[in-house]
Design a binder for these strands. Structure first.
Lengths: 157, 157
DNA sequence: CGGATAATCTGGAACTAGTCAACTAAGCGC
DNA sequence: GCGCTTAGTTGACTAGTTCCAGATTATCCG
């Protein structure tokens, strides 16, 4: 929020290098877009990147997102019914709340202390390495406008 | 497993009627397919239905699945990276384990007692009505063949 | 600094899951 | 059985994403 662009730029470049990735304009752009707009989908990212860099191919965006995901620099989430979304918050096990009306995604700190959800009980031989929790419901905005009815056409990101 | 086809057939017909749905061959077929193959995707369902009924349009299958989901007769799950899957187990809050390798889905009883994960903490105004938990990992089969089958290079996690 | 090398990027085509719309066929209450 | 209403058929179409082949470009290493 308060970080100037070129400082962020340098910081991201360092992050890329730290993960063994080459530093390229699209990559910086993609990460910057995600820093600014968490939970953005590929298309939103592409548009944001183009706004700051000019022409960038869709494939480049997908490719970068894929590379970043592989490198664990971004995390890919895919709530049912919406295209894949990406976020730069990695390494902590936070979860997500998704609005059924408008699809907006919000982070939730794993309320419980010791990852209570990570123990699936009898695993039928599965080796579990991650527990993903998605809370479904209605966001404040939609919940309100639902009572008031009509209007709303989603603007939140 | 032990239930003969026409008994299942009748039982499903009753279930459909109980939910105010007309009884049609494709609908019976779809539910039967899901009883036999839980967590099947639309395509798998379509193929199974066609095997027993002959020609059934893809659209019909989607339509039926949609109707059944609406009527809460089946539940739709959508693990990231795979097409939508359906199951007839509804009404209990079990969760799923998904294999990263082969995509197979297994049911998990909600191990915890009082749905520990259902409390997202500060909800930012969200009204949560469902918590969906997905455990990601490697199924027994893939886990075994991974160690045995050598080759598989990737190791970094 | 100046290649050599391999990773990236481009543009377009293709593929999969799923939707829409207009029409026909079938279920079921009378 | 009759006919209203809901289902199913067909076929074109969209969104999201991936694949392919060739042009670019960042890094490595001397």
């Amino acid at each position: 929020m308060g970080v100037p662009d070129d400082q962020l730029h340098a910081e991201i470049a360092a992050r890329l290098r730290a993960h063994g990735l080459r530093v390229t304009a699209p990559r910086i752009g993609v990460v910057m877009a995600l820093e600014r707009t968490p939970h953005a989908d590929a298309d939103t990212v592409a548009r944001q990147v183009r706004k700051s860099l000019g022409a960038v191919s869709t494939q480049a965006v997908y490719d970068v997102l894929h590379a970043l995901t592989e490198a664990r620099l971004v995390r890919r989430i895919e709530p049912a019914g919406s295209p894949a979304r990406y976020e730069t918050r990695v390494g902590d096990n936070h979860h997500h709340m998704v609005c059924r009306e408008c699809g907006v995604v919000a982070d939730v700190e794993c309320a419980g202390e010791a990852v209570p959800c990570l123990n699936p009980g009898p695993t039928h031989g599965f080796v579990v390495d991650e527990a993903e929790v998605t809370f479904w419901g209605t966001c404040a905005r939609c919940h309100t406008s639902e009572s008031t009815e009509t209007s709303l056409i989603k603007e939140n990101g």
